[in-house]
Computed example of a mutant assay.
Amino acid sequence: MKEFFYLFLFMLHFTEGCDLDQNTQRVDVTGHLGESVVLPCSCTELQAKPPQLTWTFTSLKHTTKPEEIYPNQRSERHRDRVKLLNESSPGNLSLHISNLNTEDQGEYHCSVLHQPHINITLSVQGCHLSDHGKRKEVSGYTGGSVLLPCSCTDPQTTVKFTWLLLNGSHRNEVFKNEIYKGRLKLFNESNPANLSLLISDLRKEDEGTYRCEISPTYPDITVKIKGCDLDQNTQRVDVTGHSGESVVLPCSCTELQAKPPQLTWTFTSLNHTTEPEEIYPNQQSERHRDRVKLLNESSPGNLSLHISNLNTEDQGEYHCSVLHQPHINITLSVQE
Rank of each mutant, 00 (worst) to 15 (best):
E278A: 04
Y318G: 06
G182K: 11
D314W: 05
Q232D: 07
I330C: 01
E16Y: 08
Q262V: 01
L93I: 01
L100N: 10
N99W: 06
T331Y: 11
L46M: 14
L165P: 01
H78D: 03
S145I: 04
V29R: 04
L270E: 03
E173R: 15
Y6N: 12
E76P: 00
C43W: 03
T240M: 13
Y280W: 15
P261S: 11
T234N: 03
L33Y: 07
S59F: 03
C253D: 07
T64H: 13
E313F: 09
P116Y: 05
S94G: 07
P149H: 12
L305C: 07
Y180K: 00
E3M: 06
T240L: 12
L195H: 07
S139R: 15
L323G: 02
Q156K: 14
Q125E: 15
K136I: 06
N119P: 02
V239C: 13
G168N: 12
S333F: 14
T274M: 14
S98P: 03
A258Q: 03
I120F: 00
Q22G: 03
F187E: 08
E255A: 08
S88H: 14
V334A: 11
Y218W: 10
K83W: 04
S94M: 02
G182N: 14
Q262I: 05
N86M: 02
H327D: 05
Q257W: 09
L332C: 08
K61G: 05
R291L: 03
H170N: 13
H170S: 13
I221G: 03
L93S: 00
T142G: 10
G17W: 09
D206C: 03
T121H: 12
D314T: 08
L166H: 04
P216C: 06
G31K: 07
I307L: 09
V223D: 01
N99H: 14
F267W: 11
I199W: 01
E336K: 15
R26V: 12
D131Y: 14
L93N: 00
N194V: 01
D314C: 06
Y70Q: 00
E277Y: 14
I179C: 04
R171W: 10
T264L: 07
N119D: 13
N191W: 06
Q47L: 15
R203F: 03
Q156Y: 13
L294C: 02
S59N: 15
G168M: 06
C127V: 05
T102G: 10
H306I: 02
K136H: 12
S321V: 05
L46V: 06
N282K: 14
P40G: 07
L249M: 09
L20V: 00
E255S: 08
H128P: 02
G301C: 14
N167M: 11
D131C: 05
K83C: 01
C41E: 00
Q156N: 13
K134S: 13
